[in-house]
Design a protein around this nucleic acid. Structure first.
Lengths: 110, 110
DNA sequence: ATCTTAGATCGAGATATCGCGAATCGTCAA
DNA sequence: TTGACGATTCGCGATATCTCGATCTAAGAT
């Protein structure tokens, strides 16, 4: 089955959300950390596909729980991560396809 | 004569400056406009290499003179443009090598 | 020397971001 | 149904960004 890649460029509004999201070092760090979900303590191999829960991410940031939740929401609204609720937990993982599309847009417009 | 490209990655501090600079739509626009210096009115072919003066850029932004000057300083501090003073005028042009290096860094770390 | 012009810098008010703790919501377990 | 727990949302004070007009600097022009 063929899956054609999405090559639409990011709109001005989407770029604004992305650059605002990434203009915070902690949020940028979160995105990098999520490249290696297994590096989070207590992460099971089965969890890799769904992502990492807020509490585990919060441990690494050192920020408060509410701040961490907000920052992840900002990354999600910028299209950089995907959230999946399972039971009491919300798991976050990178949106690799969209990040690739973003990098393509950046190469095009800058 | 060989000129070897610089492949050093952007540091955390440099990335912070870049993302902050580009999290403003007008500043992002400036960078795009400067890809076509000849599109500025009154631009001579000889001026292309040195860039565009502040007043010409200000005309296009619609912002005040001081704001435009500050925004260009922010882009310069982020390493995205180069300023050249000639007489009373300051000309700004894109720092293409550094922008290319930035895009490489982004592909590496994100 | 004085005036003008291009740009940079300063000071300030409006708005936005940062990060916190408290309150709230949703889900599971007693 | 009540309690506990993970996560989100709310309210807030501190800090930063936005944009302006005014002032200052440096370089021609008179």
């Amino acid at each position: 089955m063929y899956v054609r890649y999405d090559h639409r460029m990011f709109s001005e509004a989407e770029l604004l959300a992305v650059f605002r999201a990434l203009s915070n070092p902690t949020r940028r760090q979160m995105l990098v950390w999520l490249k290696e979900p297994m590096s989070f303590p207590g992460q099971e191999p089965d969890d890799v596909e769904i992502g990492v829960c807020v509490t585990d991410i919060q441990q690494r940031t050192g920020l408060g729980q509410s701040t961490t939740s907000q920052y992840l929401a900002i990354l999600r609204q910028a299209g950089l991560v995907v959230a999946t609720r399972r039971g009491k937990w919300t798991y976050y993982r990178r949106d690799e396809a969209n990040i690739a599309r973003l990098l393509e847009t950046l190469r095009e417009v800058f």
